[in-house]
Simulated assay, not measured.
Amino acid sequence: MNDAIADFADRLVDVDGVVKTVYVAGSGPAVVLMPEMPGISPDVLRFARWLADAGFTVYVPSLFGVDGAYPTTVEGERIARRACVSAEFRAFAGGGTSPVTAWLRGLARQAHADCGGPGIGAIGLCFTGNFALTMALEPAVIAPVVNHPSLPLDDPAGLELSEDDAVAVRDRINRDGLSVLAYRFDSDRWCTGQRFAAYRKLLGDAFDGRVLPGNSANTEPPPFFRDVVQTPHSVVTAHFVDEEGHPTVQARDEILAHLTARLRPS
């Protein structure tokens, strides 16, 4: 069933003349939650509501797809193809940093100005997974969370970063003592151990990569994940299993605790 997103305020956010729709809910320090391919699904919105319930103002920018929908397999493939050739994204190796991350850093600045606090969180999922790390180039971002990053699609050890941005991100993480929390399933073919190894090579002990058993993933995900992704992938969304003590529930709770410690310190 699709989600009407009726409990979120939808805002038009202008960053340097580029306007995008952003769905906002909750109160407290800001967290920017970026959608996974193929869009802001009901599963992404479920995670956004958990963030709001945990005491954060969650900002969900519309970057691709149909907001609130579970697209069919064919529709999801069409959305993915459009994103892969869009000037905003760098889906393949050699493309460097996706230009849309500059807009997302502007959103982070606005969200911090609106909500206050020591800084904001940024959570990337799948296609946007690494964007949370790139957003750390914005000083307001102090709690990046990288979930099953899938870009670049053609390089399992790639990081979807230009060389200059990789150095700048590493230096910022080290200078300010930040940590990068990350998740993947051990059998994920889109986000492999090679990618996590590349993050650790770049960031050292600041990279906290956590790996869940693939056989714990939801076995009945939405059509796009069943037919296109075809592998355990989305830890806190499409492959989440809402059972007490389940590894994906533990991952969700760890993310909420991480954000609380960074954004609402005692």
Rank of each mutant, 00 (worst) to 15 (best):
L107A: 04
L107N: 10
A108D: 04
A108Y: 03
A108W: 02
A111L: 03
A111H: 06
A111G: 04
A113S: 09
D114L: 08
D114I: 01
C115L: 00
C115D: 00
G117S: 10
G117I: 05
G117W: 01
G117C: 08
P118S: 07
P118F: 07
I120R: 08
G121P: 06
I123S: 08
L125M: 13
C126I: 08
F127D: 04
F127C: 02
F131T: 01
F131H: 15
A132V: 11
A132C: 10
A132S: 15
T134E: 12
M135H: 09
E138S: 08
P139H: 02
A140K: 10
I142H: 04
I142Y: 04
A143Q: 02
P144A: 07
P144L: 11
N147L: 15
H148W: 14
L151Q: 13
L151T: 09
P152M: 07
L153A: 14
D154M: 04
D155Y: 02
D155A: 07
P156C: 04
P156I: 05
P156A: 14
A157Q: 06
G158P: 08
G158H: 11
L159G: 03
E160W: 03
E163G: 00
E163Q: 11
D164V: 15
D164I: 09
D165W: 13
V167I: 12
V167T: 14
A168H: 06
R170Q: 15
D171A: 12
R172K: 10
N174R: 14
R175S: 13
G177P: 05
G177C: 03
S179I: 01
S179H: 14
S179L: 07
V180Y: 10
V180W: 09
L181P: 06
L181S: 05
L181N: 05
A182Q: 11
Y183A: 11
Y183P: 07
R184L: 12
R184E: 10
F185H: 14
D186L: 11
D186M: 11
D188M: 11
D188E: 13
R189N: 11
C191T: 15
C191W: 05
T192N: 12
G193F: 14
A197N: 13
A198H: 09
Y199Q: 12
Y199T: 09
R200H: 14
L202D: 10
L203I: 12
